[in-house]
């Protein structure tokens, strides 16, 4: 049985190792994104449009002015999806 001090040291090492691994994974996984409009379910939008201020306030499904962020190249494959120009 380890003493508390040893447990804390071992735990911090485990955390440090996991953190380093997840940073490495995140760098591998970085993907380019695009804003895709016209396909969002009501209340599931990413950001403000249509006179409202924040995410999650789209009032109806598939509103052409509401968008969500998707991996680049996905939007054109979705029926009704339009890429929003930045």
């Amino acid at each position: 049985m380890m003493q508390n001090k040893q447990i804390i040291t071992a735990t911090l090492m485990a955390i440090g190792l996991s953190a380093a691994l997840s940073v490495a994974n995140a760098e591998d996984k970085k993907v380019e994104t695009e804003k895709c409009a016209g396909i969002v379910k009501a209340g599931m939008n990413d950001c403000g449009a249509n006179g409202h201020s924040c995410a999650g306030k789209a009032a109806k499904d598939n509103d052409p002015a509401e968008w969500i962020t998707l991996p680049k190249g996905t939007c054109e494959k979705i029926t009704g999806g339009t890429v929003v120009k930045e």
């Binding site: 049985m1 508390n4 447990i7 071992a10 090492m13 691994l21 997840s22």
Partner: peptide, 18 residues
């Protein structure tokens, strides 16, 4: 946490972090 979970703690943290 060290008191409550003793030598299980590093493993519990590893899983939780991953």
């Amino acid at each position: 946490l060290a008191e409550q979970f003793a030598d299980q703690l590093p493993w519990l943290f590893s899983v939780a972090m991953q």
